[in-house]
């Protein structure tokens, strides 16, 4: 299959029950792809955010696509709490593995390196650690009486993000959003939506190459102009604040959220 595909074809590896990692809200969230996943009706995702998320996680949770969530925070930022996340947790419907930002980075870095775990400072004495039976405290074997937390490597099935551009060989320019490269290195497979296709190879120019994720890690690319909307694509376009405010207002209730989905997610069916 070619590496450049239609959005629907590109998203095919995101199957029900898979572990999907998405980036934080300000670094290139694949929102057009997220709406397509909701239209397709994906279920039981084990969603991981690197390390936080806003609208993307809230939409997937509200639309019933998520069975479990690992995150260090879900919030709409200046637009308030993430209403569907908050509601799902309060009703006991969503299982959350609460983490802290550097733990998510470190657990994915373990997978990048192909090692079974990564040690991390902090955490000891917190209830974050107390609720993570999968995390472990050991005594630092290189010192005396120095407890330290071990985080098992986190290996998502799929990484999904939106980036400014890609070339026909599947190389993706991520610029300084280096956590997108971490996600891709750690995940079994990576799907990227992009604003545009780059003529020639992104690896030819050393300035571009330094910010490029090699196609080696990438399974599929789909064109999606303004594909992060209504969230920002850094250095390209800002958050659509008016839209996010409207989302916060509508999604405050289950009925309002359904209206939002009808208006901004499902209506593309007819188009």
């Amino acid at each position: 299959m070619p590496i450049i595909r239609s959005l629907e074809d590109a998203l095919a590896p995101i199957i029900d029950g898979c572990m999907l990692v998405v980036p934080r809200e300000s670094t290139g969230a694949a929102m057009e792809a997220t709406r397509a996943l909701i239209r397709r009706g994906v279920r039981d995702l084990n969603l991981v955010t690197l390390p936080t998320s806003s609208l993307q996680a809230d939409l997937l949770i509200g639309a019933g696509c998520v069975a479990a969530l690992e995150t260090s925070a879900i919030s709409l930022g200046e637009f308030g709490l993430a209403p569907r996340f908050t509601d799902a947790v309060r009703s006991g419907k969503l299982h959350v593995r609460d983490a802290t930002c550097p733990a998510l980075h470190a657990a994915l870095q373990a997978s990048e390196k192909g090692v079974p775990f990564m040690p991390l400072r902090g955490l000891i004495g917190s209830d974050v650690l107390a609720h993570r039976p999968d995390w472990m405290v050991i005594d630092n074997p290189l010192a005396n009486s120095d407890p330290i937390v071990l985080l098992p490597a986190l290996k998502p099935d799929v990484a999904l993000f939106h980036a400014p551009m890609a070339d026909a060989a599947g190389n993706v320019w991520v610029g300084r959003q280096r956590e997108l490269a971490t996600m891709a290195h750690a995940a079994r497979t990576t799907i990227v939506t992009v604003e545009k296709l780059h003529e020639g190879s992104l690896l030819n120019d050393p300035v571009m190459a330094a910010g490029t994720l090699p196609g080696l890690y990438v399974e599929a690319i789909a064109l999606a102009p303004r594909g992060a909307w209504p969230l920002t694509l850094p250095d390209h376009y800002p958050n659509d604040g008016a839209h996010l405010a409207e989302y916060a207002r509508l999604a405050a209730t289950a009925e309002g959220f359904a209206t939002y989905l009808d208006r901004f997610v499902h209506d593309r069916r007819a188009a």
């Binding site: 709490l81 009703s91 802290t100």
Partner: peptide, 15 residues
């Protein structure tokens, strides 16, 4: 497991 209030999450504080 079934809180009355849910805040966004710990962010980087636990580190």
């Amino acid at each position: 497991e079934k809180p009355t209030v849910r805040f966004p999450g710990s962010f980087g504080s636990a580190y």
